[in-house]
Simulated scan of single mutants.
Amino acid sequence: MTEAETRAPRADATRNHDQLLAVATRVFASADTEPSMRAIARAAEVGIATLYRHFPTRESLVDAVYRGQVVRLTTGARELLDQLPPAAAMRRWMDLFGDWIATKNGMLDTLLAMIETGEIAHGQTRTELLAAITTILDAGHAADDLRRDVPAEDIAASLIGIFTVAPKPHREVLASRLLDLLMDGLRPPARR
Protein backbone atom coordinates (compact mmCIF):
# COMPACT_ATOMS: atom_id res chain seq x y z
CA MET A 1 0.00 0.00 0.00
CA THR A 2 1.14 3.49 -0.72
CA GLU A 3 1.20 6.22 1.88
CA ALA A 4 -1.80 7.88 0.22
CA GLU A 5 -3.82 4.65 0.53
CA THR A 6 -3.10 4.27 4.25
CA ARG A 7 -3.63 7.92 5.21
CA ALA A 8 -6.80 8.79 7.11
CA PRO A 9 -9.39 10.78 5.14
CA ARG A 10 -9.26 14.53 5.47
CA ALA A 11 -11.66 16.08 7.99
CA ASP A 12 -13.69 17.81 5.26
CA ALA A 13 -14.01 14.54 3.33
CA THR A 14 -15.26 12.80 6.46
CA ARG A 15 -17.74 15.64 7.08
CA ASN A 16 -18.99 15.44 3.48
CA HIS A 17 -19.36 11.67 3.74
CA ASP A 18 -21.29 11.95 7.01
CA GLN A 19 -23.51 14.72 5.61
CA LEU A 20 -24.31 12.68 2.50
CA LEU A 21 -25.12 9.69 4.68
CA ALA A 22 -27.44 11.75 6.90
CA VAL A 23 -29.26 13.26 3.92
CA ALA A 24 -29.57 9.86 2.21
CA THR A 25 -31.04 8.42 5.41
CA ARG A 26 -33.65 11.20 5.54
CA VAL A 27 -34.49 10.83 1.84
CA PHE A 28 -34.86 7.05 2.14
CA ALA A 29 -37.04 7.44 5.25
CA SER A 30 -39.43 9.87 3.58
CA ALA A 31 -39.66 8.08 0.22
CA ASP A 32 -42.47 5.79 -0.85
CA THR A 33 -40.30 4.29 -3.58
CA GLU A 34 -36.55 4.15 -4.03
CA PRO A 35 -35.25 7.63 -4.82
CA SER A 36 -32.66 8.03 -7.55
CA MET A 37 -29.06 8.78 -6.73
CA ARG A 38 -29.60 12.11 -8.51
CA ALA A 39 -32.49 12.94 -6.13
CA ILE A 40 -30.29 12.15 -3.13
CA ALA A 41 -27.48 14.33 -4.49
CA ARG A 42 -29.96 17.15 -5.12
CA ALA A 43 -31.31 16.86 -1.55
CA ALA A 44 -27.73 17.00 -0.24
CA GLU A 45 -27.08 20.03 -2.45
CA VAL A 46 -24.09 18.39 -4.11
CA GLY A 47 -23.36 17.27 -7.61
CA ILE A 48 -23.95 13.67 -8.59
CA ALA A 49 -20.17 13.20 -9.01
CA THR A 50 -19.64 14.12 -5.35
CA LEU A 51 -22.18 11.53 -4.26
CA TYR A 52 -20.56 8.87 -6.46
CA ARG A 53 -17.08 9.80 -5.19
CA HIS A 54 -18.21 8.86 -1.66
CA PHE A 55 -20.60 6.06 -2.65
CA PRO A 56 -19.63 4.60 -6.04
CA THR A 57 -22.80 2.50 -6.32
CA ARG A 58 -26.36 2.56 -5.04
CA GLU A 59 -25.50 -0.61 -3.13
CA SER A 60 -22.61 1.07 -1.32
CA LEU A 61 -24.92 3.90 -0.22
CA VAL A 62 -27.69 1.52 0.85
CA ASP A 63 -25.17 -0.60 2.75
CA ALA A 64 -23.80 2.45 4.60
CA VAL A 65 -27.28 3.74 5.50
CA TYR A 66 -28.48 0.29 6.57
CA ARG A 67 -25.43 -0.40 8.72
CA GLY A 68 -25.62 3.07 10.26
CA GLN A 69 -29.22 2.46 11.25
CA VAL A 70 -28.39 -0.94 12.76
CA VAL A 71 -25.58 0.65 14.80
CA ARG A 72 -28.00 3.37 15.89
CA LEU A 73 -30.40 0.70 17.16
CA THR A 74 -27.80 -1.45 18.88
CA THR A 75 -25.96 1.40 20.60
CA GLY A 76 -29.23 3.21 21.19
CA ALA A 77 -30.41 0.53 23.61
CA ARG A 78 -27.49 1.13 25.98
CA GLU A 79 -27.59 4.92 25.56
CA LEU A 80 -31.31 5.05 26.33
CA LEU A 81 -30.81 2.91 29.43
CA ASP A 82 -28.15 5.35 30.61
CA GLN A 83 -30.75 8.14 30.46
CA LEU A 84 -34.11 6.54 31.23
CA PRO A 85 -35.79 3.83 33.32
CA PRO A 86 -36.00 0.55 31.36
CA ALA A 87 -39.69 0.80 30.37
CA ALA A 88 -39.21 4.35 29.08
CA ALA A 89 -36.01 3.27 27.29
CA MET A 90 -37.90 0.40 25.63
CA ARG A 91 -40.63 2.74 24.40
CA ARG A 92 -38.10 5.22 22.99
CA TRP A 93 -36.18 2.35 21.38
CA MET A 94 -39.38 1.28 19.66
CA ASP A 95 -39.49 4.70 18.00
CA LEU A 96 -35.90 4.18 16.79
CA PHE A 97 -37.00 0.83 15.38
CA GLY A 98 -39.83 2.56 13.53
CA ASP A 99 -37.35 5.03 12.04
CA TRP A 100 -35.24 2.08 10.87
CA ILE A 101 -38.23 0.42 9.24
CA ALA A 102 -39.20 3.70 7.53
CA THR A 103 -35.66 4.11 6.20
CA LYS A 104 -35.70 0.57 4.82
CA ASN A 105 -38.90 1.31 2.88
CA GLY A 106 -37.08 3.83 0.66
CA MET A 107 -34.36 1.35 -0.27
CA LEU A 108 -36.28 -1.90 -0.12
CA ASP A 109 -35.64 -3.24 -3.63
CA THR A 110 -31.90 -2.69 -3.40
CA LEU A 111 -31.78 -3.98 0.16
CA LEU A 112 -33.65 -7.19 -0.72
CA ALA A 113 -31.34 -7.79 -3.67
CA MET A 114 -28.31 -7.30 -1.41
CA ILE A 115 -29.70 -9.72 1.18
CA GLU A 116 -30.40 -12.26 -1.56
CA THR A 117 -26.82 -12.07 -2.87
CA GLY A 118 -25.38 -12.19 0.65
CA GLU A 119 -23.94 -8.66 0.55
CA ILE A 120 -25.91 -7.97 3.72
CA ALA A 121 -26.19 -10.69 6.37
CA HIS A 122 -29.82 -10.49 7.45
CA GLY A 123 -29.32 -13.12 10.15
CA GLN A 124 -26.53 -11.09 11.74
CA THR A 125 -28.75 -7.99 11.82
CA ARG A 126 -31.54 -9.97 13.47
CA THR A 127 -29.12 -11.26 16.11
CA GLU A 128 -27.87 -7.73 16.84
CA LEU A 129 -31.40 -6.31 17.13
CA LEU A 130 -32.57 -9.12 19.40
CA ALA A 131 -29.50 -8.51 21.60
CA ALA A 132 -30.44 -4.81 21.85
CA ILE A 133 -33.98 -5.69 22.91
CA THR A 134 -32.63 -8.24 25.39
CA THR A 135 -30.34 -5.60 26.90
CA ILE A 136 -33.35 -3.43 27.67
CA LEU A 137 -35.44 -6.40 28.84
CA ASP A 138 -32.70 -7.53 31.23
CA ALA A 139 -32.50 -4.05 32.74
CA GLY A 140 -36.29 -4.01 32.97
CA HIS A 141 -36.32 -7.36 34.76
CA ALA A 142 -33.71 -6.16 37.26
CA ALA A 143 -35.75 -3.02 37.95
CA ASP A 144 -39.07 -4.94 37.95
CA ASP A 145 -40.08 -2.48 35.23
CA LEU A 146 -40.79 -5.03 32.43
CA ARG A 147 -42.39 -8.47 32.40
CA ARG A 148 -40.09 -11.48 32.59
CA ASP A 149 -42.17 -13.78 30.39
CA VAL A 150 -41.88 -11.91 27.09
CA PRO A 151 -38.90 -12.86 24.90
CA ALA A 152 -37.11 -10.41 22.62
CA GLU A 153 -38.36 -12.35 19.58
CA ASP A 154 -41.99 -11.58 20.51
CA ILE A 155 -41.25 -7.89 20.85
CA ALA A 156 -39.46 -7.81 17.49
CA ALA A 157 -42.38 -9.62 15.81
CA SER A 158 -44.86 -7.22 17.42
CA LEU A 159 -42.87 -4.20 16.21
CA ILE A 160 -42.72 -5.53 12.67
CA GLY A 161 -46.49 -6.10 12.77
CA ILE A 162 -47.18 -2.60 14.09
CA PHE A 163 -45.02 -0.89 11.49
CA THR A 164 -46.52 -3.04 8.74
CA VAL A 165 -50.05 -1.83 9.49
CA ALA A 166 -49.04 1.66 10.59
CA PRO A 167 -45.92 2.64 8.65
CA LYS A 168 -44.08 5.81 9.56
CA PRO A 169 -44.38 8.63 8.64
CA HIS A 170 -47.81 8.17 7.07
CA ARG A 171 -49.55 6.77 10.14
CA GLU A 172 -47.42 8.02 12.97
CA VAL A 173 -50.37 8.64 15.31
CA LEU A 174 -51.68 5.08 14.84
CA ALA A 175 -48.17 3.63 15.26
CA SER A 176 -47.71 5.60 18.48
CA ARG A 177 -51.02 4.32 19.90
CA LEU A 178 -50.14 0.74 19.02
CA LEU A 179 -46.65 1.07 20.52
CA ASP A 180 -48.16 2.45 23.73
CA LEU A 181 -50.55 -0.50 23.81
CA LEU A 182 -47.63 -2.91 23.35
CA MET A 183 -45.78 -1.16 26.19
CA ASP A 184 -48.81 -1.54 28.47
CA GLY A 185 -48.63 -5.28 27.81
CA LEU A 186 -44.90 -5.37 28.61
CA ARG A 187 -45.28 -3.85 32.07
CA PRO A 188 -45.72 -6.17 35.05
CA PRO A 189 -49.40 -6.34 36.14
CA ALA A 190 -48.71 -4.30 39.28
CA ARG A 191 -47.30 -1.42 37.16
CA ARG A 192 -50.09 -1.15 34.57
Rank of each mutant, 00 (worst) to 15 (best):
T14D: 13
I40G: 06
I162V: 14
A44D: 08
H170S: 08
A142V: 06
I48L: 05
D109P: 06
D180Q: 03
T6Y: 05
A132M: 02
A13S: 13
Q69P: 00
D18A: 11
A13N: 10
A121C: 08
L174T: 15
V27G: 03
P151Y: 05
R92V: 04
T164V: 05
Y52W: 03
K104C: 15
R42Q: 11
F97Y: 15
G76M: 02
S60E: 15
N105Y: 01
T103Q: 02
T50Y: 02
L159T: 01
G185E: 00
G118V: 08
A39R: 13
L130S: 03
A166R: 07
D149S: 08
P85I: 05
D99W: 06
L81S: 04
N105D: 11
R58N: 08
H17G: 03
E172Q: 15
L178N: 09
R10K: 13
T33I: 06
R38C: 00
V71W: 10
T57K: 06
A89N: 02
V65G: 10
R10E: 14
L21H: 12
A175N: 07
A29R: 12
A41E: 04
R147P: 05
Y52G: 01
L112I: 13
L80V: 00
F163D: 11
A43C: 04
R72S: 12
E45W: 10
R177T: 10
V65F: 08
V173R: 13
D32I: 04
M107W: 08
T134C: 04
L178T: 10
I155T: 01
I101M: 12
V23S: 00
A157K: 06
A131P: 01
T117C: 09
D95R: 11
G98V: 07
T110S: 14
V46E: 12
P86A: 10
P86T: 00
P85R: 13
D82P: 02
T164C: 04
R126H: 13
V65E: 12
I120C: 05
